[in-house]
Amino acid sequence: MAKVEFNEERCKGCGLCTVVCPEDIIALAARINKMGYHPAQVKEMDKCTGCTLCARICPDCVIKVYR
């Protein structure tokens, strides 16, 4: 059991988390946040292993990981 929480309003849409996710379950949303960026979102939370790689590469400390 694992999950991640994205503070989407803090996300600058850089996409670094999307390429390090070993399960490939993160993608940028079609919507834009208050800062005008497409925030990163998890597509299939049930596949999340809580590995923390997305959180570790996030320059904006957007991601909280539970396991």
Binding site: M1, A2, K3, R10, K12, G13, C14, G15, L16, M35, Y37, G50, T52, A55, R56, I57, C58, P59, D60, C61, I63, K64, V65, Y66, R67
Partner: peptide, 29 residues
């Protein structure tokens, strides 16, 4: 489930002025 990764307390809870993807934010953390 327990929190296994979150914002460190010494890191201010603000949005930085750094450009998207700039890795200064990682080093700050």
């Amino acid at each position: 489930m327990k929190v296994v990764f979150e914002r460190p307390q010494a890191l201010s809870d603000v949005t930085t002025h750094y450009c998207p993807g700039c890795t200064h934010g990682i080093i700050h953390r």
